[in-house]
């Protein structure tokens, strides 16, 4: 059984459903990637798993526990952390304060986790007294991921972490994400850059119009001619 699973999720913001019987899951220490064309409901599926969208049908379970009815805040202590696509740092707070706020719910000593984040993203240590709003786009993404890691999550959910960053920064960021996964944290992410994302993915989900179209390992999807033709540009 998967560590985190959103099963047969159906729901939307208003009267019309965006998701139709959509299932997304991730195993412990693995990377799952959701790809698909624009408007396929990728981000919506992510938000549904984090409880930011009311589901009409379906369930979300983490480690076997049903959390479908929990509010997003209540999912944080369950070991979930979410990095939104935009506005994902506290711009007027320093880098260090951003990390501290990530660990807001923790009552134990956080210096160890902070050290790990600084080791993962050395540039953040350098800029730790600087306001997060003054950093470059790629550095901000690092702060955002770092903030999420501070809760010591079991699952890290990333909504298009590479949106708007240069290809070099993107590769760098993916390397770091692999590193995070190796430490035993499950990663669930939505990606616009489908090819690169599937390359690092243990599992890939191709969504179309809010429903699962293809589900397989990342490598298998990359090799599938149908997927290549329709979603990866040949």
């Amino acid at each position: 059984m998967s560590f985190l699973i959103g099963e047969n999720m159906t729901g939307g913001y208003g009267a019309a459903d965006i998701l139709h019987e959509c299932t997304v899951a991730v195993e412990k220490g693995e990377i799952a990637v959701i790809v698909g064309p624009n408007g396929a409901g990728k981000s919506t599926a992510m938000k549904a798993i984090f409880g930011m969208l009311k589901l009409r049908r379906g369930a979300v379970r983490i480690d076997g526990e049903d959390i479908t009815r929990l509010s997003p805040q209540a999912r944080v202590p369950k070991g979930m952390a979410f990095v939104p696509q935009t506005n994902n740092v506290f711009t007027s707070l320093s880098v260090e304060e951003n990390l501290e706020m990530g660990a807001y719910l923790r009552r134990d000593d956080i210096s160890g986790t902070m050290e790990q984040v600084y080791e993962l993203f050395p540039i953040l240590r350098e800029k730790r007294r600087q306001a997060a709003g003054e950093l470059s786009g790629g550095q901000r993404q690092q702060v955002a991921v770092g903030r999420a890691l501070m809760t010591q999550p079991k699952v890290l959910m990333l909504d298009e972490p590479t949106a708007g960053v240069s290809p070099i920064v993107m590769d760098e960021l993916f390397d770091r994400i692999i590193e995070v996964a190796r430490s035993g944290i499950s990663i669930l992410m939505v990606e616009q850059n489908a090819r690169q994302a599937l390359e690092i993915a243990d599992k890939g989900y191709v969504l179309v119009q809010g429903a699962n179209r293809y589900t397989d390992t990342g490598q298998a999807l990359l090799a599938d001619p149908d997927v290549r033709k329709s979603f990866l540009g040949g």
Binding site: P72, Q73, N87, V89, F90, E100, M101, Y104, T151
Partner: peptide, 23 residues
């Protein structure tokens, strides 16, 4: 203080503050 910083965080970005577990 932790509480004071959480107030600034909330003022800065309410949604992200919620995601961080700030009440």
């Amino acid at each position: 203080t932790r509480t004071g910083k959480s107030m600034r965080a909330f003022s800065d970005n309410e949604d992200l503050a919620l995601l961080s577990g700030i009440n």
